[in-house]
Amino acid sequence: MNMNIETQTSLPTPPKKKRLKGIIIFAVVIAIYVWAFSGVPVAEIRDTAGIKSIFSGLFHPDWDYVYLPDGEDLLRGLLDTLSIAVLGTFISAVLCIPFAFWASNSMNRFRPVAGTGKFSLSFIRTFPELVLALLFIKAVGPGSFAGVLALGIHSIGMLGKLYSEAIETIDLGPTEALTASGASRFQVLWFAVIPQVIPAFISFALYRFEINIRAASILGMIGAGGIGTPLIFALNARDWDRVGIILFGIIIMVTLIDSISGAIRKRIV
């Protein structure tokens, strides 16, 4: 009798193995968090008077900085940032096309070839754009051009991946029809592949442009041009009303670009 009841009650509870697994996972998670929090110093605010000036500065921005007749103002900084993002995105959107064909499974007969392409794209992706910017500053000197090059190279990683996936999903019917009627490889590419992928390519480039606008606005903090340069100066000088207006400018610009490019993307796809 007793045995019977025991077997009946033990049925709904999970098997021992599964429960053990749960306990182990729980213990590992706890251990990770103990390790993580043990290395953190106690938070202490440096000076409470500073906080007050930070908030009053951020909420009372320096409106005069929006336009100064003799240069180096908010509008010109934002224009620089925009230019860096436009040119950087354009460069990467062009440069990533060969990478995309290299990395797509449908364009290569041998899988390993596409594999190496995919690997080189993820290799490019892992370099942070700020590290690239530091390297390009060494090559072409500080300024917007270093930022353009950094974004142009870094964006190849993501755009190349998205483009190659777009190439993999095309309808192969037109390609086969053209090959059957004796078109050359180039003709197949030009008349069957390109028309199918153009909308996706433009849409991804715009998406990357939205990301690049954000990236370009901080590149200046390490000397690669754009609005980041006056921002880091204002931060170092604790000029909070100027930080406030620059922050405001960045938010407005990013929101505007997002909505414009979002509207265009909706029409394309």
Binding site: I51, L130, I218
Partner: peptide
Amino acid sequence: RTIPDLLLAAIFVAIFG
């Protein structure tokens, strides 16, 4: 989401050191 992470960090550095 429009505020870049590096900028947030710079502001918090000014507050907490």
